[in-house]
Write a protein that binds this DNA or RNA. Structure first.
Lengths: 231, 231
DNA sequence: TAGATTGTTAATCGATTAACAATC
DNA sequence: TAGATTGTTAATCGATTAACAATC
């Protein structure tokens, strides 16, 4: 069990994506400096991240293909894990269609929906079953990952149900913070909050821009050089 | 311009969600201690976060309604910002249907798709236009936010187009790291990478569990008390 | 060899937590 | 008043970056 920091694990898929592109272009080696530039981090951080899995080659850098393999091993990308999806509305359907998951070893084994108009259909090759069957099938199929894409007001309820049935990780896309016992891993995705962050940064940068503009106007009227931006 | 740290901004929508629930239940005041427990952070962090907008009331805590308002003001939740969405496939459609955005002031003004079978339709009340019109309409409508939900291999191309047309923030849902000039804010969502993290944590916790189990077996055979888990 | 790049330690930076005086 | 809770400073923690010897 190589104990790897989660901050590192978070970056590994990104290294993998970049390496994939480089492999396609026929690159055999890549330096920590190049990876770092693409991820906007420091080269020494790249070296530290990769050091937990493998060793690079002096003068050349890291072998592209081997590094990908090592990342795949560590993340278990090659052994498929099955998950159940609660909620087959538009968000649920988008998750079923998302092409990125397969590569990382995630398979949505079945979806569940309370709406009888949807249950029974097959969406993107995944069977949608009636919501009542969720708990029973989780236990019987020994499913460990539950994905939640139900309306906000029933999200906690569905999570509780999943936990009781034996799920050990919950990936929640409803805009609400879900709670579960400590032994269950919960990831609240919350796109609305992500947007709030993006929007705030945008606002800040617009302010900075207009400030710069004001300085510029000032400069024109009185001839003072504009202040250099603080670094 | 109250300069607030982005780590704080990230938490504000979560406070807002919690406060909303409390308001519904008729709560008038909430203490930093209670908010902290629900967000799994330290009470002093909550106080620090809120201090940038307002002041609490000694002995009572923070007034629920006012705190919500302050957060709404700081995040600009009440003045709608328009964004364009590139890609009206299943992911794009899910984003158009996502109810969480409206509350935070995000309106998808129009969507664009290269597929003539989709372009021309109206999905969730949002018009889907042909991809050729994207750039021109961004400039003419002075759109600042571009959302990308196109296939991975054209994502960078679409981003470049958006930047050239004047977009200042890009929210990317394709599983690839997009690059843009420094003055453009880019947020790469990358669900596949999020999954990798979740999956790794799950694996770790399963290991810990089986280790505990092994200890337990050992204990049975020789009568030693199990070691307490490191804290 | 000289030069490029790794692996790793120490320094720095930034965010969270602990502590506690102020106060209603 | 006594007690609860804030606001804020100092201490701690953890992650990133800088520096540099090792090495192919």
């Amino acid at each position: 069990m190589p104990k790897v920091d989660v901050v590192t694990v978070k970056r590994l898929p990104q290294y993998h994506q970049i390496l994939q592109k480089m492999k396609q272009r026929g690159r055999e080696y890549v330096s920590s400096e190049q990876l770092a530039r693409l991820l906007k981090v420091d080269p020494s951080l790249v070296r530290k991240d990769l050091a937990c899995m493998m060793t690079g080659v002096q003068k050349l850098g890291y072998p592209v293909h081997l590094t990908m393999k090592k990342i795949e091993d560590l993340l278990g990308m090659r052994n498929t894990k099955e998950a159940f999806l609660a909620g087959a509305g538009s968000l649920g359907q988008a998750l079923m269609a998302y092409t990125g998951f397969k590569q990382y070893g995630l398979k949505i084994a079945a979806a569940f929906d309370a709406d009888p108009a949807i249950a029974g259909k097959i969406v993107n090759g995944i069977e949608v079953l009636p919501a009542e069957k969720l708990a029973d099938l989780i236990s019987r199929m020994n499913i460990k990952i539950g994905i939640i894409a139900v309306p906000t007001d029933v999200a906690q309820e569905v999570a509780d149900l999943m936990v009781k049935a034996g799920v050990l990780a919950i990936w929640n896309f409803a805009p609400v913070i879900l709670h579960a016992p400590d032994y269950v891993i919960v990831r609240n995705e919350n796109l609305a909050a992500e947007y709030a962050k993006l929007s705030y940064k945008l606002e800040q940068s617009l302010c900075r821009r207009s400030e710069v503009n004001e300085n510029y106007v000032f400069e024109q009227t009185d001839g003072e050089p504009a202040l250099p931006e603080g670094k």
